[in-house]
Nucleic acid binder design. Sequence first.
DNA 1: AATTATAATAATGTCGACATTATGTAGTTA
DNA 2: TAACTACATAATGTCGACATTATTATAATT
Lengths: 228, 228
Amino acid sequence: MPLSKTNNLVSCDNFASQVLIQLKQDILTGFFKPGEKLLMARLKERYQVGISPLREALSQLLVEQLVIVENQRGFRVHPISKQEMLDIYETRASIERLCIGLAIEKGDDEWEANILACAHKMNKFAEQIEKSPQEWELRHQAFHTAIAEGCLSPTLLQVRRSLYEKAARYRNLWLNTNMVDPKTFDDNQNDHRLLVDALLNRDSALAKQIINEHLLSPSRLLSKNFQD
Amino acid sequence: MPLSKTNNLVSCDNFASQVLIQLKQDILTGFFKPGEKLLMARLKERYQVGISPLREALSQLLVEQLVIVENQRGFRVHPISKQEMLDIYETRASIERLCIGLAIEKGDDEWEANILACAHKMNKFAEQIEKSPQEWELRHQAFHTAIAEGCLSPTLLQVRRSLYEKAARYRNLWLNTNMVDPKTFDDNQNDHRLLVDALLNRDSALAKQIINEHLLSPSRLLSKNFQD
DNA sequence: AATTATAATAATGTCGACATTATGTAGTTA
DNA sequence: TAACTACATAATGTCGACATTATTATAATT
């Protein structure tokens, strides 16, 4: 292993896993644009590693469908399409409904308590959303994850995570100007309140209906912004 | 690229993708046992490639959760557990129900026709199952895939494929002696007939119930064979 | 001028080598 | 005998170098 890095890094997983995180971030946030060629020389330069860890990270992103590989012509960022966006959002909604249905069946006191805790942390940050949108996104995500985790199925939660990432990419790419329309935001916050109520009342049908709308309405918004 | 292989291989994807297929097969069929250490030297020997393509293939299997990586101690085959097996089968059943629900909504004439065609090819092979279990498995899989494809969602079908593989691993590992109990087999074939009828009648509830039982009854069988 | 042929340039995919880290073993001490 | 240290062995993770293949630019021919 090379010298310069061993001393600097505390938790030294291999380089590939470090690169994986950064590269994924760069694709999700649109630093590397959809369809863009991923030149090895460029990646080497940017992440300061050799080719081997890079190819390992790219191999993993290949499975997650964030990059594509062309026979002997290297890697590209996975292209985007309106059609794929809609498919991802529809599937995501289906999976989330599934998680919520199971969570309502299986969730215990701690599940309920954790939802309320995460909801609180999210709401506390509602005013500062302008200040740090990414921190709000983190808390928003934590809230929804707390709900889904009640399903107690690692396998299902893994699927959910993967779909969240793919959806996040479209959100980041198409809502480039962080449009936080106050009306939309208030509607969203209302969704959250109604959702928590439905969950605590174990009203599965209502909760599923709310989450469905909550997840699909952004996709309809995105759909307008993008002609394909 | 090395010399010896370039001439021999017709469709020359990179070595990593070739190794991926073989290595996955070896894990799914239990040639490499759960939890087993995957020595680079051994893998190099077996697949006749260098370390780089191997690590790329392993990186992909890492995402698919068929191998695990230990900090600086290389790769192992992903361990198995009764708990994980049950989780995978439950999730798989949920996803399959989802696919079937959507397929019944969206499926057209061609969808119906393809199901019948695949059912026919499967039934034709029913007697020869002893002769070539893997060919029967192929046709069985094609039948169920034909049904699921009616959902018209690439994203969802991808999830389905991944879960199928994980489940297949447990099936291969625990049903080591290819136990084709005639009674069970006939029940299965009956499931298939009833399922096709329900699909053509667009009876979503019934179809979901049948597929659920069809997928979960093996898991109950496996469950008995394995103490954890 | 358009199209093909040819050369040069660039980028990929692979291996071998090397430094780092883990594992196993013998030897020493209490 | 148990436990700890020191050493030897083995395995991993990374880079640089090289052969193969693709891409671009240039020349040649119709």
